[in-house]
Design a protein around this nucleic acid. Structure first.
Lengths: 325, 325
DNA sequence: AATATCTCTGACAACGCTGTCAGACAACGC
DNA sequence: GCGTTGTCTGACAGCGTTGTCAGAGATATT
């Protein structure tokens, strides 16, 4: 920058003005400076800029598991928006650990990350960890009421109800649920919807039909094998997410249980892979990319404080019926 | 920091020394300062530190497509290593665009990212874009000879040969290949292996049996439908990657082609989903997590300049036979 | 003509750290 | 006692930007 200033015969501040496109500057100097910048290939040092502006133009994204396609699709949505707005994206994975998440928030705080998007439940500790200034925290799928916290939610409840209604319409009465370990905020709503739907159709809620496990493929496979062995009367499986459902599909294939004839399966999230299995998986579609885009846009709005936006965004969910139910 | 210094009755520099664990400091002052730090909840401002040290403790990772499980598994490996070493990870997606990649390199350069890991072919332009200092660039699956460039490679050639040998052993003679669009460095090696294997077994290389398409599920599906319609004599399909293979599997299911009886399918990469399809997909396993770990470790070694390391790391590939072949 | 207003530019401090160097003090050797 | 060495600490500059303020000159207003 000093070189540019010297070569163009202007002050540092003038170069800065040109770079930042401030308008109080004569066209003639502007073009001269721009030429010199090009000539010298000057690029501003974002670190120095951050130091003085207290803004980094970086958005943080903390996912529980980067390999889970659900999160990577959300991440893509976030990335699209940040890129469009000249923000960088810093992704970190907490590996499902609360401590890890807090620590990551602290690090991002020290890095002067301008705003952070995270999944999973919120604690006041998180707000403290990502503290100074008015930098926003966006939670996906959890609600937490705090002026610095925004929230983007998929409509888990109605999505789950749609899935259950569909199973009832197909004549199923003994419907089990493959759930996540307790604690996930999506979990809560989906399980509620499951229970409420049973009640609505005049059926008792049988707790032994709610099986919990690690919400990935192996977890779904193991849980399904156990469940179908113990409760062969079950005719349908509503799964907390598609990974569990894919595991269930695999388990059925291995046990010789025909899907959907012997046991129908419905998943949740509609990840890409859901459509290519045989049979193709019925699933409740959530536009994950849109979820990410909304979260990022909300973050940017809160950062730029363009308005006092509605801090709660809801994304619809829609049942996609394929061959597994 | 100023507050800490005042409260503990020491200079700024002493606080800095404590924070950075420099040893020329009396135990008594150290504990006193540490206590004050805890009391005040002080956390160093990493931006300011970066500005003076010209190091950010950030590693950049540029992937072509964050939703591709191949890349996300590599990303996880990278993340593991960076986290262990107190580095942050900045992930960006170039969306398969060379221009995007260069631009991202420039941004990361301005952010003082300490080193960058990227996929796909390398151009000298990239070295320029991520320029100043001795900051390393690690390429995954491409070789580029430059003192600042390190390289991590999977053994594509031998992996592909193993797949082909396996198909020959099963008696196949009319083997087609589903390939990527030209340009990917992995592509080149795998196609060479395919061709060499044919020759080795005394068969002609029929260019019309090499079909190229977008290396994702829909691409594989479309290409397979076209191929099997035009060339029903084909009895086996060797796919550039698992996504293509999954698409092929889907296409076969839809066309009533039995796998592996009518047409055997072998993929490459062994992504998680390969094992849960019906039939389960045979694939050449590459330890993607290890690929990421190695890339990250190489980056860190080159950053810390612990040695002049071997700038080329190779990761083996191993055929996993399942039910699709 | 004098004053006010506007447009453009530059000097300088500041952001929060670390590196350099020098200084204070104690311990040691002769 | 004197210099030498070693250990610990602090003053100060500087990293590369931007924000603040003031000033120069041109133009408009009275």
């Amino acid at each position: 920058m000093k070189q540019v200033a010297e070569k163009a015969n202007v002050s540092l501040k003038t170069v800065s003005r040109v770079v930042n496109n401030e308008r109080e500057i004569a066209d003639e100097t502007r073009t001269r400076v721009l030429e010199t910048i090009n000539e010298l290939g000057y690029r501003p040092n974002l670190v120095a800029r951050s130091l003085v502006t207290q803004r980094s133009n970086i958005i943080g994204l903390i996912v529980p598991d980067i390999c889970n396609p659900y999160f990577s699709e959300v991440a893509r949505g976030v990335q699209e928006i940040t890129q469009e707005n000249n923000y960088s994206l810093m992704i970190a994975s907490s590996e499902d650990s609360e401590r890890g998440e807090i620590e990551l928030l602290r690090v991002m705080n020290s890095q002067s990350v301008d705003g952070v998007i995270l999944f999973g439940p919120m604690w006041s500790e998180a707000v403290d960890a990502f503290g100074a200034g008015n930098r926003p925290i966006i939670t996906v799928n959890t609600f937490y009421d705090h002026p610095r916290v925004g929230c983007v939610m998929a409509d888990h409840y109605n999505g789950a109800c749609a899935a259950m209604d569909h199973l009832f319409a197909r004549g199923h009465r003994r419907i089990a649920m493959l759930a996540d370990v307790v604690g996930d905020p999506r979990e809560e709503r989906r399980v509620s919807a499951y229970q409420d739907s049973l009640v609505k159709h005049g059926l008792p809620v049988d707790e032994s039909l709610i099986v919990r496990g690690n919400p990935r493929i192996p977890g779904g496979r193991a849980a399904t094998k156990k469940l179908l062995t113990e409760r062969p009367d079950v005719t349908a499986l509503f799964c907390f997410n598609d990974l569990l459902a894919l595991g269930a599909l695999k388990a059925c294939a291995e046990m010789g249980v025909r899907v959907p004839e012997d046991c129908a399966i419905v998943g949740f999230d509609d990840i890409d892979f859901a459509s290519i299995t045989t049979p193709a998986l019925s699933s409740v579609r959530v536009d994950k990319r849109e979820l990410g885009r909304s979260a990022a846009m909300l973050a940017l709005r809160m950062i730029e404080r363009l308005d006092t936006p509605n801090r709660l965004v809801e994304i619809p969910a829609e049942l996609i019926v394929r061959n597994s139910s």
